[in-house]
Design a protein around this nucleic acid. Structure first.
Lengths: 162, 162
DNA sequence: TAGAAACCCTTGAGTGACTACAGAGTCAAG
DNA sequence: CTTGACTCTGTAGTCACTCAAGGGTTTCTA
């Protein structure tokens, strides 16, 4: 199959597949006479695996570790467990941060019930003083904003779910 | 004052200040004879405001809107309210996603209680099948991983808190 | 007063995980 | 034979910074 079909099957888009190839996550495929990439069932498997991991918010480096273990089935999988435990820890930590954030934002929002002149806006006032209380920690856990880049992930999920 | 002192006062680092200047968030400051940037109290205020907003995970574009209202105190602040409401929505949405994520990761983790051969690892098995159930949405809300870039934010917070 | 240390300058590249585009080639259907 | 859908490579852009090289300036200390 060509790249477009692989993309459809795995619920990714085409550029992402080429990106993974460049990045070494997908093996370099054979080419047709017309220089098109030709994929087989193993590629579908591997790409779907990657996408499933990505939908669990793992980094490509984390996924690389998992792929390594898939390829070396005789090795001990303790590292897989460790990786997942760490990842669960990151998610939990980020959730705590977001809870604190939500609290602060709602506090702030209550300072200005309805529209008035900006000069008397409680929100701007609040932001102009040092309100933020809790000391953040954070090492590996990201922010609140996701740009268009990640939208294909959502599409990807729908693609190969039951 | 010079850039280093401003950085200390606002709890940022020097590169970030120059970055904000390039990006138009901070006005171009005067220069000393030796070509050093010279800042005053207004710069401290403005930079602290920006950092406070960033510690609430707002984007620079969102902050630009807020700065505009700070500078036009006679305008109606309804947009400030709207911006904050939207932002609160994003945070709430991301928290829901992370909760779902945590559930899935813990499910997965239970599939492999202790270390064994990767060939029989329940986690790798799980990731190889289509487990992920919920359809993600997400438009503007980011992932679980934060890299070194954001660590200075935490430092920033400590800088100007009570 | 010399020299070292601390600070500052600009420029350019790097981060993660992609997306988007330009400009060209290939292929199947009508 | 042409249209349109698909594919190719390569490059640049996203976000909010960080880091490093290679230089200049200022301040502290001996």
């Amino acid at each position: 199959m060509k790249i477009g079909e692989l993309a459809r099957l795995a619920g990714t888009n085409v550029e992402t597949i080429r990106y993974y190839e460049r990045d070494g996550l997908l093996p370099v495929p054979a080419r047709s006479e017309g220089n098109y990439r030709i994929y087989g069932e193993t590629h579908v498997q591997r790409l779907s695996f990657i996408r499933r991991c990505r939908s669990l918010d793992m980094t490509l480096d984390e996924i690389r570790v998992l792929l390594h273990f898939k390829e070396s089935p005789q090795e001990n999988c303790a590292d897989v467990n460790r990786l997942l435990d760490r990842h669960i820890g990151h998610v939990a930590q980020r959730m705590q941060e977001l809870q604190e954030l939500e609290r602060q934002l709602k506090d702030l929002r209550e300072r200005c019930g309805e529209a008035r002149e900006a000069a008397h806006c409680g929100i701007l006032d609040g932001l102009s003083q040092a309100i933020v209380p809790g000391g953040e920690t954070a090492s590996h856990v990201q922010g609140t904003h996701r740009h268009a880049a990640n939208r294909s992930l959502a599409k990807g999920n729908q693609g190969n779910q039951v």
